[in-house]
Design a binder for these strands. Sequence first.
DNA 1: GATTCCTGATTGAGCAAACAAACGGCTTGC
DNA 2: GCAAGCCGTTTGTTTGCTCAATCAGGAATC
Lengths: 200, 200
Amino acid sequence: MKSVTKKEALLQAAKELFGEYGFAETTFKKISDRAGVALGLLTHHYGNKEKLFFAAGMDVLEHFISVLRAATEGAENGRTGVLCFCRAYLEFSIDPHTNWLVLVRCSPYSDMKASDDREIMLRKFAEVHHLLEVQLQRGIADGSITPLTPATTAQVIVGLMVGANRTRVLTPYTYGSSQNFYTETLTFVERAISSGSAGN
Amino acid sequence: MKSVTKKEALLQAAKELFGEYGFAETTFKKISDRAGVALGLLTHHYGNKEKLFFAAGMDVLEHFISVLRAATEGAENGRTGVLCFCRAYLEFSIDPHTNWLVLVRCSPYSDMKASDDREIMLRKFAEVHHLLEVQLQRGIADGSITPLTPATTAQVIVGLMVGANRTRVLTPYTYGSSQNFYTETLTFVERAISSGSAGN
DNA sequence: GATTCCTGATTGAGCAAACAAACGGCTTGC
DNA sequence: GCAAGCCGTTTGTTTGCTCAATCAGGAATC
């Protein structure tokens, strides 16, 4: 088995811990303990806590975007492209191996003070939005999607994905399974964008 | 006019600061300074930081629920009830006087460790969900809404509201105004739930 | 004068980051 | 082939600071 470098071990531990406990509740000690390396290595490899947080988030975000890209590529028309996007989004977020949570924590909060890094991350996030917008435009052109404003609707749908995630995490007693909930979410999106009759 | 008690002043300052800076970045000193009272009063009235955070969130949540309740009461059928709910939700969240942000911070994060308080808050949140579900059931019964699962769809729509908020706060360069975005969000919901033709 | 409300300096814990010292592998000169 | 010197990595202790919570007592109110 390929040996993992200590730097990589630190990043992995950071993704897990930042995701689970958030920025403030995660300490250098916890990270280095979980990674099984000395505390001082953290500053040496990543400079400071902020930069490590950013590196952890970016790592997940890049993986996420590559998955979304792959998912939309095979779609036969715009509407299925949008639905593939949504399905991939939800599946990625539900998979414990992706360390999705750290990305959730990275973006929405003022934790991210370093404005340079923040700018880079926002630019990357825009790619997510763009991937969806392309499918919406395509769907309007090929007639599988009802006429609507692509940019704004892309925002609405991404918002729906974000919210669906949060609802799943938060909801105390899940009504049915997460699977049910996600299926219903996809149906909801399909009803909202489909042109003409409901058939697939 | 009755002067605001120091306890109330603390709560107000806490709502503003927790909302703006989050739990960890908000200190006793900042709160007591803004409230214009002594630092020690904080522990005296609220016990500890966690409890104050909870009190701040609950205060906003109760106000929020009363507004939602009022908004849905006047609706003439289920579909308009749902749309009134959504409009009220978005308007509340955009109004700077409501201290909406502290509520956003309160729920999704492990900041809220005290499991008793967390339980109480989740129960209150369920009321929001219930208000919407009632309107969905009504709409299905009166024919203004297409047949769907009320409980799950209520979750989806609440998720959409949550996400819309986040998107608005996060998006670097807003595509058009918040107003546009919210209007599009409402249209999206309407398309997704409406039975039959698109007319109002 | 007693009870309740209020004050802000003090305390002690916990943290990010700095630091000096040990380690190991890699080059260079012979 | 080998010894000497060098530089990036690794270690864990130390430092200096911030903050939540305490506490002993002061002010206000009855």
